[in-house]
Design a protein around this nucleic acid. Structure first.
Length: 223
DNA sequence: CCAGACGTTGTT
DNA sequence: GTCTGG
DNA sequence: CCAGACGTTGTT
DNA sequence: GTCTGG
């Protein structure tokens, strides 16, 4: 799954936004936790744009926004049945740009945080968005889609975020395409080789918003 | 018909 | 144990 | 995802 | 909003 990630305004994220034809730059944000405000790429009036959204999807039909249900991740396997996600999956898909994400590997009852990142590009995570409320009060929110981890990643965790390859960006963001035509994009794959690095457990505290130092040697995984 | 749920992960 | 906040 | 709270009365 | 359970 993915419950924490980092965004850095660097050449990799700048290149990603350029690929998406978004003329903007990202704010650097370390150790982003669910419910926080993030920047997401979505299509509006035929053009891609960056928009601030809350990382915790609020269905448009709930009476009051809340956190009773876990809405920051959406399982790819059940998207089409889910009352909360199937609507957004049809026409409200987005890309969540990220520089790296964090997973906790569980070993004999203890958890160790790891940072995962591509060596020479930024991630484009597959997401869904929705809005709640009207006018100036309107809240945009989003969720990150997860799927089974590829074999090579399962030593760290059994779930992974869906990482879109560049040739899928256009289809994924196009609201004229129905989600069910794109379900094949949600299978477990890696867009490139990934560097995995054990990091300081200081990351555990979501109030810690600075860059985290590594505690081990990086290793690479690839399919 | 109305009421109530609507979610994920990990662990046992 | 379970909920809230980040 | 993890961390931290989880309560009341009275006084400033 | 839409589905399931009673």
């Amino acid at each position: 799954m993915c419950g924490r990630f980092n965004v850095i305004d660097d050449p990799f994220t700048q290149d990603l936004l350029e690929q998406l034809e978004v003329k903007a730059r990202l704010d650097t944000q370390y150790n982003i936790a669910p419910t926080e405000d993030i920047q997401v790429v979505m299509q509006e009036d035929g053009a891609n744009r960056l928009r601030h959204m809350r990382w915790w999807l609020i269905p448009s039909w709930v009476k009051e926004p809340g956190t009773k249900y876990s809405m920051f991740n959406a399982r790819a396997e059940t998207l089409e049945q889910s009352p909360a996600f199937r609507g957004p999956f049809k026409h409200q898909r987005c890309i969540i740009p990220a520089s790296s994400f964090i997973e906790w590997k569980s070993e004999n009852g203890h958890k160790h945080p790891y940072s995962i990142r591509p060596s020479d590009q930024a991630f484009a995570f597959a997401g869904l968005w929705d809005h709640w409320g009207h006018g100036a009060e309107r809240i945009y929110s989003c969720s990150m889609i997860t799927t089974d981890a590829v074999q090579a990643f399962q030593t760290i965790h059994n779930r992974q975020p869906v990482m879109l390859p560049r040739d899928a960006f256009d289809q994924w963001l196009n609201p004229d395409i129905e989600g069910d035509e794109l379900i094949h994009l949600l299978r477990p794959t890696l867009p490139c080789a990934l560097e995995v690095l054990e990091i300081d457990p200081a990351i555990n505290n979501s109030r810690h918003k600075k860059q985290i130092k590594p505690t081990g040697e990086p290793f690479q995984i690839w399919v």
